[in-house]
Simulated scan of single mutants.
Amino acid sequence: MSERTSDADEQLADVGRGITLGYRRSGSGDIPLVLIAGLGQQMHEWPDGLCGLLEGRGYDVIRFDNRDVGKSTHFGFPPPGPLNFLRKRWHPEQYDLSDAAADTVGLLDVLGLSSAHLVGMSMGGMIAQTIAARYPHRVASLTSIMSTTGAPRVGRPALSTWRLMFGRPARNRDEHIASAVRMYRHISSRGYPFDESAVRAAAATTWDRDPHPAAGVGRQLAGILKSGDRTTELGAVAAPTLVLHGDRDPMVNPTGATVTARAIPNARRHTLPGMGHDLPVGVWPTLADLLDTHIRTARSTDAPHH
C-alpha cells in the first residue's frame, strides 16, 4: 500500500507487467478522483490550480505519468516513421490503449482503491473510456474531455495540426519550449487569453522531467492508432458518463464528442464555448463545477460507491 502525502510529492508505483508509473496524490478528501493525461502529457499538465479547486471540494486527486512519458517506464523500441503510421505497420512490441488502461487499473490496485472516478483528457479520455468498458466495477463515474472513439473520419486533427505534430523533434530544452508554444498557440482555446508564460513553464517542466520526449510521444500516438475504432466496445460502459468538449478544438474535432456520447449508453454531452485543446485558467471553475456535479450525482444514485 502507498501512503498518501500531504504535500503532493511524486512517488513511483509498480503497477505490474514490468511497468512503473510516477504519480502524485493530493487533497485530504475521501472521494478518489483519477486524472488521466493526454498524448505526450505528464501529470503536471493537469494544472495545480484546477486540482486545488477539486481538492477543496473533497476529492482525493491522483495524477500520474502514462507509460512512455515523465518518470514512468519508457520503451526502447523506435516509434514508427510517417510511412509506417500511414500503413499502420507497428513494431512487434507496440502497445495499445488497453495496455495503458491496465496500467491505470494497476495503479488503483497499488493505492488500494476498489473503484475511482475517472477523468481523462484527449488520449487520457480514450484510456478512461477503455477502463470503463473493460473494468466496469473499477469505475464509479467517467468523464471524457476533448476525446473521441477512434471511429474513422471523426474527431480527427486538422491538417495544419498534423503538420505541427510531425515536425522535427526538439534537440534541446529551448527548442522543446519553442515547439510547445507553437503547438499550443495553434490548439489553444480561442475564447480565452493565451498564457504563453504558463505554456513555457509547463514545457520546461516536461523537458526537465523527461528530456528528448519525442520517441515516447510517437509510441503513444501509435498506441492510439493501433487501437482502431473502439465504438462497439464503448457500448459496454456502464458508469455514469459525462462527455465534455470545446467548440474550437483543432486537435480533436468536436465530432469526437458527438460519437463518444452516442456510443456510451446514457452519456451526457456538454459543450464548453470558446475552449480548444487545452485547459485555460478561465475554464477551471466551470470544469470543477461540472465534474463535481457529475460525480456527486453518480454517487447519490449508486449506493455501493459512496
Rank of each mutant, 00 (worst) to 15 (best):
R248A: 15
V34E: 00
S2T: 14
L50D: 01
F85E: 02
R134Q: 15
M43Y: 07
L50M: 03
L291W: 08
H117F: 04
V259S: 11
D99R: 14
R269S: 10
H212I: 10
M275C: 11
S179M: 14
P304H: 02
P157A: 01
S114V: 08
D249H: 00
L272Q: 02
S6I: 12
L279W: 03
H277I: 03
G228I: 10
T260I: 07
V69Y: 05
T206K: 06
H270Y: 11
A151L: 06
N172A: 04
L291A: 08
T206M: 13
A239C: 06
R24M: 01
G106Y: 06
A151E: 15
R182L: 13
H91A: 11
A170C: 07
L221E: 03
M121H: 02
P280M: 03
P193K: 07
V34M: 06
A178E: 15
N172K: 06
P250A: 14
V243C: 12
F64Y: 14
T20A: 12
R248Y: 09
P285Q: 07
D109Y: 05
H277D: 07
P250F: 11
L108H: 04
V154L: 04
P47Q: 09
W162P: 00
R153L: 10
M183K: 09
A101Q: 11
G18A: 01
D14H: 10
E10K: 00
A101H: 08
L234I: 04
H294L: 06
Y192T: 02
G56V: 01
G191T: 07
P211W: 11
M43E: 01
Y135D: 11
V105S: 08
P304C: 03
L50Q: 01
W90K: 02
L234S: 13
A222P: 10
D195E: 09
M43G: 03
N172H: 12
H137K: 09
L234N: 14
G218Q: 12
S188M: 03
D30R: 09
S2L: 05
A180K: 12
G81C: 09
A170F: 10
L290S: 07
A140W: 01
E175T: 13
G22P: 00
R134C: 11
R17I: 05
N66R: 06
A8D: 15
T241H: 12
G228C: 04
G52L: 00
I131G: 09
A180T: 08
T255E: 08
A303H: 09
D210C: 15
P80I: 12
A214V: 11
T5F: 04
G70K: 03
L225A: 08
F85K: 02
G81S: 11
R57P: 05
G246D: 12
A204N: 09
R299E: 13
H306R: 10
P152S: 03
T20G: 05
L118D: 00
H176S: 13
V281G: 06
P136R: 06
S72M: 05
G167A: 14
G70L: 03
S144F: 02
S26Q: 11
E45C: 13
P152D: 07
G120C: 05
R156Q: 10
G81P: 09
V259D: 13
D195Y: 01
M251P: 04
R168P: 14
L159G: 14
E45L: 14
Q42K: 07
A203D: 12
A101S: 15
S300I: 02
R173E: 15
R200F: 06
